[in-house]
Nucleic acid binder design. Structure first.
Lengths: 129, 129
DNA sequence: TATAATGTCTATACTTAGTATAGGGTCAAG
DNA sequence: CTTGACCCTATACTAAGTATAGACATTATA
């Protein structure tokens, strides 16, 4: 199939597919006489795998590591589990960070009613500390 | 004061200061005979304001809008309040998104014990859907 | 006075994960 | 033979900095 069809099947944009190829996440596909990329089902499966990972916010570098692992089907998958655990920890940390941020922002928001001017704005004066 | 001193006083790196100048957040400072940037207290205050905003993850574009507002001290600060409200909403949305992500990741993590192989890994098979 | 050590300058490249264009080639239908 | 749909490469852009190279300025020391 051509790249447009692959894009349709996977929900990735054509540019993204070419981008993943440049970055080495997708193998260079065979080409037609007219130099069009030609993909098979294996390529589609691989791309879907990548897309799932990205939807979970797993970085391209980590996706690459996962894809490498898949080449050794009889090895232990402990590293895969570890990668996911670490990723969960990262997400947790980010949530904590944002919740703290939210607290500060909410407190600040309290410091000013709409009736003030720029000069007397409670929010701006907080930001000048 | 020179850029190094300003960096020390504000906790911003020298590169970041020059970067903000290029981006128009900081005014172009006067220069010494030897072409060194020379800053006054107003510049330091402005930079601290920027730093506070950035610490709250307010984008540079939004910081620019806030800085512009500060030029009209007698205007209403309703727009400032609005900007902060919208920012809080963004942070909220991001937290929600990450929490959903975490749920999916945690569920997935359950699907595999360390004793499996790549071939039989419950996590990888989830990612292939 | 010479030189070494800092401090600073500009310009450029790099990061992430794509997205968006320009300017061209390929292929099928009418 | 031209139109339209599809595809190609190469390049630039996004955000918010960080990190260099290579040069110039200033200050301290020998």
């Amino acid at each position: 199939m051509q790249i447009g069809e692959l894009a349709k099947q996977t929900g990735c944009s054509i540019q993204t597919i070419r981008f993943y190829e440049r970055k080495g996440l997708l193998d260079k596909p065979s080409r037609s006489e007219g130099n069009y990329r030609l993909y098979d089902k294996a390529a589609a499966d691989r791309l879907i795998f990548i897309k799932q990972c990205r939807a979970l916010d797993i970085s391209m570098k980590e996706v690459e590591r996962l894809l490498e692992q898949k080449n050794s089907p009889n090895q232990s998958c402990a590293n895969v589990n570890l990668l996911i655990e670490e990723h969960i920890a990262q997400v947790d940390a980010k949530i904590d960070e944002l919740q703290q941020l939210k607290t500060v922002l909410a407190d600040m928001s309290q410091k000013c009613s709409n009736e003030n001017t720029i000069k007397t704005c409670g929010i701006l004066s907080e930001l000048e500390r």
